[in-house]
């Protein structure tokens, strides 16, 4: 299981360091797949219908639906393939390192029961949330914002599955649904922004403020 967790972490770093949007989308898709795999890994989970159901649904949404949607909007929007970060990529990576260290030292404090999963899941979840936030803050294109949002949600998902035994799955399903709606809205928004302004740079949104 540690393997899968480390894989999840590495995909997050790929989104930080990669310069191409399509790579980011692929990394997020892979991350979704790993997450769904992780749900299945604890023993007895194949016999538990909850687990199998959650894994299937999250695989369908996180690995197929959303990335496909993103790839589609990328194609539709006909934008440049590059990420255009406000913080350069290598600095982003260095920031990632700082977040990583922060997450690991913070994880000791959180001390949650992680029963079927290894302890590593907590720092990984925190790191991924941090990375998601960081992407939201440091990238300008709407598409990368969606990716950041997705990664953030994946972190929450990781936290969620530690509670899988105690809490009803409806909570998690709610989150998934929430996300799907969010992405649809974003997708439509990207489409419209693009149609109106010819690009999807969120920096342009600042032009909408009231002029004095």
């Amino acid at each position: 299981m540690e393997w899968v967790l480390i894989g999840i972490m590495l995909t997050a770093f790929v989104t930080l360091g990669s310069g191409r949007l399509s790579n980011c989308i692929r990394a997020v898709a892979l991350q979704g797949a790993l997450l769904s795999l992780l749900v299945l890994l604890p023993s007895h989970s194949f016999s538990d219908s909850h687990h199998v159901f959650l894994a299937t649904i999250s695989f369908l949404i996180k690995t197929i639906a959303i990335p496909a949607l993103l790839a589609w909007s990328l194609k539709q929007a006909k934008i440049k393939q590059e990420v255009d970060p406000t913080i350069s990529l290598h600095l982003s990576l260095l920031w990632g390192g700082i977040l990583l260290v922060g997450a690991f030292s913070g994880a000791k404090v959180v001390s949650l029961p992680t029963a079927p999963f290894p302890f590593l899941i907590i720092p990984v979840a925190i790191t991924i949330m941090f990375v998601g936030f960081f992407l939201l803050v440091s990238r300008t294109k709407a598409l990368t914002q969606v990716i950041g949002f997705l990664i953030l949600e994946n972190g929450i998902f990781l936290f969620g599955i530690t509670l899988i035994g105690e809490f009803p799955l409806t909570v998690e399903m709610g989150v998934l649904l929430d996300l799907l709606v969010g992405v649809f809205v974003m997708g439509i928004m990207i489409y419209h922004i693009n149609k109106t302004f010819d690009h999807i740079d969120t920096k342009a949104l600042t032009l909408l403020k009231d002029s004095e």
């Binding site: 540690e2 770093f13 390192g97 260290v101 302890f119």
Partner: peptide, 16 residues
Amino acid sequence: IANFMLALLALLVALS
């Protein structure tokens, strides 16, 4: 730098 991050990750994993 990415390689450095990899090494850092190895360190943190080794610790935890």
